[in-house]
Design a protein around this nucleic acid. Structure first.
Lengths: 158, 158
DNA sequence: TGGCAATGTTATCCTATATAACTAAATACC
DNA sequence: GGTATTTAGTTATATAGGATAACATTGCCA
């Protein structure tokens, strides 16, 4: 009884060079999501290796650029980053001269976040680099239509 | 010049209660992938909280069940888990009485992995629980067709 | 005015993941 | 056949992500 291909069930024995039965995991939506996400993030990391920018850093810079003057809690919240961990993240960006924490005059507890001039320049470049990566992903998907399809399907899972 | 809705660009000022401009991040494939993956894993964790089973544990049990007698390196490899980290993972499953490490007679360095009787019973139950979750995800996607579409699109990213 | 909530921060913990080094055993090479 | 290389499992260790608790300062509000 070694008819794997018929039943898909594991045979009682295996030859040393045999491929493993992976259907039990590769059929799982969450598993495939995770693999795809890791693959895309890996590509991001390799592309942005020179700029020393991680996905979280990039998303923070983009959000600050598109919402200048917002306080830390607001930016952290939309990214689902705990404000305690956001402190370290912003601190790093500030040390690199990309972000400014300006004490809010309206609320003395809060810091208003802004990009520095250098931060604007840096992000403009990073956005170009990222745009190229995004376009490659779209190409791999098959086009804009497939990208829209994917995003719509992902939305239903969230 | 406060016509955000027309340009999508940030206005120079924001009202305290305003929603943030998030298009810069939510349009990114990798960002949406990550959010969806986190959401699905979160659901997994809450559903399997009672069984104290994490996604990685589940995938390991399934792979051992479907490929009994394989050695650690083989199972770890298909899951992209470093063999050094796999040691701890399998050790935990062994301590819980779900997995056996049987020294291979053919290769005295290797451990042949098997589920125990208890492991088989446990996994049978876990598979049922997971099947219900998977079906809910499929329903959310819209049906089997959409599931197949999603998996196909994810494949192209990997 | 006094109590409660929010902001930013520090400290700490846990988990996941990556790397290096080691042993014992198998394999390759000559 | 004996030596060198590779492989399997393991240990120790480092880093990064993310969660929680506690605290000072400030804002809110009733």
């Amino acid at each position: 009884m070694t008819q794997d291909s018929a039943t898909g069930a594991p045979s009682s024995a295996h030859e040393p060079g045999d491929a493993l039965q992976t259907g039990g995991t590769t059929g799982i939506i969450g598993y495939r999501l995770r693999r795809a996400q890791l693959s895309v993030f890996q590509k991001f990391l390799s592309i942005f290796d020179g700029l020393k920018l991680r996905p979280a850093d990039y998303s923070v810079l983009v959000l600050i650029a598109d919402n200048p003057g917002r306080k830390q809690t607001e930016i952290a919240e939309v990214l689902d980053i705990k404000r305690a961990n956001f402190v370290t993240l912003v601190h790093g960006l500030e040390e690199r001269g990309l972000v400014e924490r300006i004490p809010s005059s309206a609320d003395k507890r809060a810091n208003a976040l802004h990009l520095t001039e250098e931060g604007e320049t840096f992000l403009a470049h990073a956005r170009q680099v990222h745009e190229a990566m995004e376009q490659e992903l779209i190409d791999r998907l098959g086009g804009e239509g497939e990208r829209a399809q994917l995003l719509a399907l992902l939305d239903r899972l969230t």
